[in-house]
């Protein structure tokens, strides 16, 4: 068994799973903890990933996804044409 702590790439992936409430296998959990002890970049990644998640959830659909009435009229016309064929 490889007991070296994971590299940054693997650690950030593990951290992402943990952020989304997935229980990690025991040794992965230990590895991630050890890695985060000495790697400030991954600590930042974890913190910022959490911020992104919270912000994205807050964002909701603040863009209004509305259809142009002209587009809808065009579709209605296309459907009628097909039906008349």
């Amino acid at each position: 068994m490889d007991i070296r702590p994971p590299c940054c790439k693997d650690a950030t992936l593990l951290a992402e799973r943990r952020l989304q409430n997935f229980k990690l296998p025991f040794w992965d959990q230990v590895g991630l903890r050890v890695h985060l002890l000495y790697c400030r970049y991954c600590r930042r990644f974890v913190k910022q990933s959490r911020i992104i998640a919270a912000a994205a959830a807050k964002m909701q659909q603040h863009e209004s996804f509305t259809l142009d009435p002209a587009v809808k009229a065009g579709w209605e016309a296309a459907i009628s044409r097909k039906l008349d064929q």
């Binding site: 590299c7 790439k9 970049y41 930042r44 990644f45």
Partner: peptide, 16 residues
Amino acid sequence: FDEKGHWRKDAQPQRW
């Protein structure tokens, strides 16, 4: 990440 899986220098997370 580089081939060892460490952050590339220009990709290291900055402090927010």
